[in-house]
C-alpha cells in the first residue's frame, strides 16, 4: 500500500500542496473554475512552520485510527483493505470528537456546514494531488518499504562518507 511521506528537509513553505488539495476537492477540479464554487473547496493538509522549519502535516491514516474509534455516527471509517480513513459528510454531525483526538490536527471543517473535512488520499487520482503539486518533491507517494530503503541508502552513504573521512585522518 502506498503512503504519503514527507521529506522533512525539503519543504520550502510554498503552500502549493494546499492549493492543489483544495482544487482536487472541488467539483470542477480546475483552479480557475474552482474559484467560484460553492461549497468552497477546502484543503485537507496544512503547511506548518516551527522556527525556520516548514512541513506539511496531513492525515497519516493511522491503524486503529482514533478518529474512527470516537466517531459515534459512523461518518469516519477505515477501509478494510486499503486502511484509508475516509469521512462521510452525510453522516457527520459536527461533534468534533475526531478533531479532539487527532494527534496531528489535520481534520478541518467545511466553510458552509458544521461538518468535518479530511484527507481521502485522492481516490480519483493515481498520485495524490498534493504530491504531484510539490515543486521540491518534499512529498513522496510510495510503499513504506521503498521509503525506508531510500532512507537507509541516505544513512548508509553518510556513514560510509564519515568512515572514509575518519580513515583519511
Amino acid at each position: 500500500m502506498k503512503e504519503i511521506f514527507v521529506r522533512l528537509d525539503r519543504c520550502v513553505g510554498c503552500h502549493s500542496c494546499e492549493l492543489a488539495c483544495a482544487v482536487e476537492h472541488s467539483a470542477a477540479k480546475s483552479l480557475f473554475a474552482a474559484l467560484a464554487e460553492a461549497p468552497v473547496p477546502r484543503k485537507r493538509l496544512y503547511v506548518e512552520q516551527v522556527l525556520t522549519h516548514k512541513l506539511p502535516l496531513l492525515c497519516r491514516h493511522c491503524e486503529d485510527a482514533p478518529c474512527v474509534r470516537v466517531c459515534r455516527t459512523g461518518a469516519m471509517s477505515q477501509d478494510a483493505v486499503s486502511r484509508i480513513v475516509t469521512h462521510d459528510p452525510e453522516r457527520c454531525i459536527g461533534c468534533w470528537m475526531c478533531t479532539m483526538v487527532c494527534p496531528y490536527g489535520v481534520i478541518g471543517r467545511q466553510l458552509e456546514r458544521r461538518i468535518a473535512v479530511k484527507c481521502d488520499r485522492c481516490p480519483d487520482r493515481e498520485e495524490p494531488a498534493c504530491v504531484t503539486a510539490c515543486p521540491t518533491r518534499a512529498l513522496l507517494y510510495m510503499e513504506e518499504e521503498d521509503f525506508s530503503e531510500r532512507m537507509r541508502r541516505v544513512a548508509a552513504a553518510e556513514v560510509v562518507e564519515g568512515y572514509g573521512r575518519a580513515q583519511a585522518v
Partner: peptide, 9 residues
Amino acid sequence: CRIDPFGEG
C-alpha cells in the same frame, strides 16, 4: 505574501 483564494488562509 500570498492570499488563499479559497478564503481559508
